[in-house]
Every structure is written in structure tokens, then in C-alpha cells.
Simulated assay, not measured.
Amino acid sequence: MHDDFFYPLDSDYHASVDGQSFVRILHAAPGAPAVDVYANNVLIVRNLTYRQFTQYLPLFPGRYRIVVFPAGSRTSPVIDATLSIPAGTIYTAAAIGTLPNLRLLPIADPCIARGFGQSYVRFVHLSPNTPAVDIATSTGVQLFRNVSYTQVTDYIPVQPGLYTLEARPAGTNQVVLTVPNVRIAANRILSVYAIGLSGGQPSLQVLIPLDGNAYLPVCRFTR
């Protein structure tokens, strides 16, 4: 293993080698400062702020020591973890928790077979003080049930369209968060990340990025 295992994405990144993997990093730790991320002592991400995702970074499979510092510093790391990446995989590595108890949660973005025009959605619970929740549409269709902190659901198929999503304490009809105007286009694979704090600042909210398994070459054989 060598220190220059990460390299920038460019216009030719789709010409990936067999077995290559991809990782993006999410800052989902409410109240934590912007951070710099080092992998095997190499700076790979600079000044990542709360709510931000990096782009997917191509890398070779292996074990990596991931150390996260407050931006501009090389002392007092807020995370020091080992990340194991198998060949031919896609991951989102989320910095979660609240200071001083932060950790790195690896979340696989698995390749899934899908039909033309079909879209998929899953839910990822990363709000540290929010109890288990159900996720439903405003029309009463329950999508995910009893999802606890750090849990990641399976993807479910959804019809393209415009949705209003609601988060409710598990088993209740009380709505603690409403997310209007969620537009799901055809041929998308999305994750709904719940981040922030219930009753605190930064407040509870969601991020809905396009996942790499929708377009990265790792999954080219499942389309």
C-alpha cells in the first residue's frame, strides 16, 4: 500500500481499472467544525463543512487509517479510525455523533439491478438524539418503519414523481419533520439522510444525494 492511493477525479475517471472502488465522505456531525481528512497520512479532503459531501474518490481496495482533524490543524484529531474497502465497491463514509464522541460510519452503496426508468430510495438515520422513526409520504404511504440511529434501510423501488416526506416517531402519527417537494426523477438511486438535532441546533433536516451506484462504473453490469 502506498501513500498516493487517492487521486483526483478527472474527465477520464470512468475508465476505471477492474476492482477499483469509490468512497465519498459526508460531514454529518452537528456542532463539529469544518474538518480536514487524512488517509494514511495523505490529505484527501480539505475544509469539509457540516452537511457537505465530497465527490466520490476512486481508490484501490485495502485498509486505510482515516484521521480527521479540525480544518487547518494536525493536532487533536476528532476521529481516528480504520476503514476497510473491498474491491469493486462504493461507500459513503459519514462522520457522525457529537463532540467529543465522533466516529466514522461506513455505508455501502451497493450495486442493484433495476429496470429502465425505475428509481430507488433508502433511508439513513444519522441524527444522534432522534429516536427511531417511521418515514411516510404525506398521502399516508409508509416507506420505512422503526429506523433507529445509525441504521440504513434497504433500497425500495419508487415511481418517479414529486413527494412530500414525513418523519414520525416510530409507531405514532406525530410528524416531527416535513420535507416538501422531493422530486425523484427516473433512473435515480437516492438516499435520504436524516441529520441534525431534534429540538436543538443545527435542527433536524434531510440531505438527499444521488448515490454513486446510479452512475459509477463499478455498477456498469447491473444497468
Rank of each mutant, 00 (worst) to 15 (best):
165 L>V: 03
101 N>A: 10
22 F>A: 09
110 P>T: 10
84 S>W: 05
174 Q>S: 15
58 P>W: 09
88 G>R: 11
148 S>K: 14
92 T>Q: 02
81 A>L: 05
156 I>C: 04
221 F>T: 15
172 T>P: 07
197 L>I: 04
112 I>D: 05
22 F>I: 03
182 V>N: 02
31 G>T: 06
39 A>M: 08
123 F>G: 00
5 F>W: 05
68 V>W: 04
172 T>W: 04
219 C>G: 10
10 D>H: 02
194 A>Y: 05
199 G>C: 01
180 P>T: 02
168 R>N: 04
11 S>D: 15
62 G>E: 05
4 D>S: 15
41 N>G: 11
142 Q>D: 12
76 S>I: 10
36 D>F: 05
115 G>A: 08
199 G>A: 02
192 V>E: 03
29 A>K: 06
213 N>S: 13
131 P>Q: 10
178 T>F: 01
93 A>C: 07
60 F>M: 15
151 Q>R: 14
100 P>D: 07
48 L>D: 07
78 V>R: 00
121 V>I: 09
91 Y>K: 02
160 P>M: 08
56 Y>T: 02
25 I>P: 00
141 V>H: 15
195 I>W: 00
75 T>D: 13
6 F>W: 11
5 F>D: 06
55 Q>H: 09
146 N>S: 11
67 V>C: 03
156 I>G: 11
28 A>C: 06
158 V>Y: 08
116 F>H: 12
130 T>Q: 10
58 P>C: 04
86 P>Q: 13
125 H>F: 06
131 P>T: 07
46 R>V: 13
176 V>I: 15
85 I>Y: 00
27 H>T: 02
14 H>N: 12
142 Q>C: 10
84 S>E: 15
143 L>W: 03
182 V>M: 00
18 D>A: 15
113 A>M: 13
185 A>L: 13
183 R>L: 12
212 G>D: 01
32 A>N: 01
112 I>L: 14
134 D>R: 13
46 R>Y: 12
115 G>N: 13
221 F>C: 09
119 S>E: 09
171 G>Y: 05
106 P>N: 10
180 P>Y: 09
10 D>Y: 06
161 G>R: 12
198 S>F: 00
171 G>L: 10
